[in-house]
């Protein structure tokens, strides 16, 4: 699948991420940190229980928890617009 990430300073990075059944956008973001760019910043804690609510971002134009959205085909991720931006997708919320 293809993940487009809005980075710092409005730059957009695109990554090809190998898919597996059940992979979420958060899984894809974590894969990118492990294999390509560990400097990529985003918030997350519980990873799949949807309990901590830290991973919220704008996914394909909608506010969603990245750990609940399936990573298939092409997905765009951007930080929440109305919160102080810390870095990349991480905001102070």
């Amino acid at each position: 699948m293809k993940l487009q990430i809005q980075r710092q300073d409005g730059r957009t990075d695109t990554y090809e991420v190998p898919e597996y059944e059940g992979m979420t956008v958060l899984d894809a973001l974590m894969w990118i940190r492990e294999h390509h760019d560990p400097s990529l910043a985003f918030r997350f804690a519980c990873r799949c229980a949807n309990a901590c609510k830290e991973c919220i971002a704008v996914v394909d134009g909608k506010r969603q928890y990245t750990c609940t959205v399936a990573a298939v085909d092409e997905v765009e991720v951007a930080p929440l617009p109305n919160q102080p931006l810390l870095h990349d997708l991480a905001v102070d919320h």
Binding site: G22, T24, C48, A49, N50
Partner: peptide, 9 residues
């Protein structure tokens, strides 16, 4: 398996 999304493991 199968992998679930948004549910407590």
């Amino acid at each position: 398996a199968p992998r679930t999304i948004g549910l407590d493991p």
